[in-house]
Amino acid sequence: MNGVPLAAYIGLSMFMFTTGVVGVVIRRNPIVIFMCIELMLNAVNLAFLSFARYRYAADGVSVNLAMNGPMMVIFVMAVAAAEVAVGLGIIMAIYRLKEEVDVDEINLIKG
């Protein structure tokens, strides 16, 4: 048990991020697109935490500096919560207006 390579965590994080990007590009359901954005945020969270842990344990930075990672994750979570609340509200408002939710068909601003 010598520990897990850092590359594994970062690799998973990268994979999640890329999949999230692909999902945003190819899906048409706005709710699923929102979920893909959550996926990308979580990929970043994982990277933050694994780097914080690595820097503390291997590089020997101080506790104060190592707290940067977890703090960022907490703020990302809070921002994600706010974003979801507002975003889902917008989706519901659009649905009430147009009775359909397909991002390719939403072109209200075209006039």
Binding site: L6, A7, Y54, Y56, A58
Partner: peptide
Amino acid sequence: ANVPAMEYEV
């Protein structure tokens, strides 16, 4: 780089 498998309190 390895993440050492040690307990720590952060």
